[in-house]
Amino acid sequence: MNRFSIADCSSVDAALSQLKDGAVVKAGGVDLLDRMKDGIEQPTRLVNIRNISGLRGIRETEQGLTIGPLTTLAEISDHPLIQSQYQILADASGHAATPHIRNMATVGGNLLQRVQCWYYRSSDFQCIRKGKDLCFAFDGLNQYHAIMEYATCPSVAPSSAAVALLGLNASVELSSAKRGKRNLGIRDLYVVPDANPTKFTVIEPDELLTAIVIPKPAPGTRSAYQKYGEKESFDWAIADAGVVLEMDGDVCRRAVITMGAASPVVRRSPQAEAALTGKSINEETARAAGKVAVEGAQPLSGNAYKLDLFPVAVYRTILLAAGQRDRDPSAAG
């Protein structure tokens, strides 16, 4: 790791005052240290927000939940309210990374982590997401890469929390010393590489992620998240799915189906959602929804198998959310 100085901040205002001259925010530090150790990023000044107590914690409000971005994944997955009413988020937080990383990594950091593409993560490859003009995955090894929406860069969305929070229609609060606060939906937080490959999120250098807001689910909502890897013990997703079902008795009034490892930015599947809306949930309807979730997908040279995996991930997670199936013992995390 390169040498750096660090500004250790005890308040949001203090941190905002330090966001200048290329300083980089460090919270849990897991992904940042990873990138620095790999030599793909060499900031000379870090702004340490890890000890800002006001940015940590889970608060129930009239409208739903407000989660401080420094809340760790372990704290979220262990939280009784989240376990009972926001199962998708408990699942996603509880199956990200490894148990020890979940003790260190913050939900904010999970949302803002960079893609795991091995070309991006190697200092030997100067790729399009590092400001150069090449993507190495198209002609190289791409078995873990995207099957849809990847014209510029087929790396996949790495954040499992994002898959859950998109499903829950959550938003994030961004704060800046100069411009005050703004709120964005999860999908709008991310920049699609086709639009700007070097910018991963819309967060400006002087901005800090200061809150995650989750609306209260409608009555009758059930949800779940499952991730499949090549391994069961820690692995990145080769297919994952988030499912939120608003049920009216046996009938699904509204469905949100989200996927992470299919595309560069976390996405919903309108086709799968439409396939469930107004239907009763059973294996047949769940499988039908899974099938259409990969409609239009175009695999790369090494990942056609994902066309088989995503429909399975989606249908099984629908059934899990509906309480008609147990968590898959072979799911990862």
Binding site: R3, F4, S5, I6, A7, D8, C9, S10, S11, D13, A14, S17, Q18, T44
Partner: peptide
């Protein structure tokens, strides 16, 4: 007092 402690490099 400004809530920032400077360290390093």
């Amino acid at each position: 007092t400004n809530g920032v402690t400077e360290l390093g490099p």
